[in-house]
């Protein structure tokens, strides 16, 4: 019989007992500690993954809130800018109106002043003409001459009147 087919009960039992002992030893020395450690590590990794997922969720929530707040702030800023622009326009219009009113007032005042000055000048001129007329009349009456002489008097008066003007225009042209 080939050796492989020679069964020996003692050897079979020895092999069985040695294997049982090996199972007991490895179970205590390797399998239990390693499986426990693997379970522990798996639990730890799962826990960390859960925490990461939770953190991600919180982060997403925060990002969402932040985006909402940012949008709100932008809206507020836009509203405020629009309000400021409107206020600025309103102020500009108000200032323009004020300026226009002031200008009108100044113009009115200037016109009044000019009219007043004109009136004053007219009065002065009238007074001067009257004085000159009186002066001329006085001289006419004083001399009592003929028409030629009257005429001469009037011309003299007129010359006297024109001389200062001519002098003034000469002086201007010299300058």
């Amino acid at each position: 019989m080939p050796p492989i087919l020679q069964l020996d009960l003692q050897q079979i039992l020895s092999q069985a007992i040695s294997f049982i002992l090996l199972v007991i030893i490895l179970r205590k020395v390797a399998w239990r500690p390693l499986l426990a450690m693997l379970d522990q590590r798996r639990a730890r990794i799962e826990d960390e993954l859960r925490q990461i997922a939770q953190s991600k969720s919180e982060l997403a929530q925060l990002q969402n809130d932040y985006a909402k707040r940012l949008a709100k702030i932008e809206d507020e800023a836009r509203t405020k800018i629009q309000q400021a622009m409107l206020e600025g326009k309103r102020l500009a219009i108000e200032l323009q109106e004020q300026a226009r009113a002031q200008g009108y007032e100044i113009m009115t005042k200037a016109k009044d002043t000019v009219e007043l000055e004109l009136a004053k000048a007219k009065v002065t001129l009238r007074d001067q003409v009257a004085a000159m007329t009186m002066d001329a009349v006085e001289r006419m009456l004083r001399r009592k001459l003929d028409a030629t002489a009257d005429r001469q008097l009037v011309d003299d008066v007129l010359k006297e009147l024109e001389e200062p003007r001519a002098r003034t225009s000469d002086a201007r042209s010299d300058r």
Partner: peptide
């Protein structure tokens, strides 16, 4: 038994107090 002893030695060396 030699194979079993080898397995026991390896198990004792690396599996007795496994680190995380």
């Amino acid at each position: 038994l030699l194979v079993a002893a080898g397995l026991c030695v390896v198990a004792w060396r690396y599996g007795r107090k496994p680190s995380v």
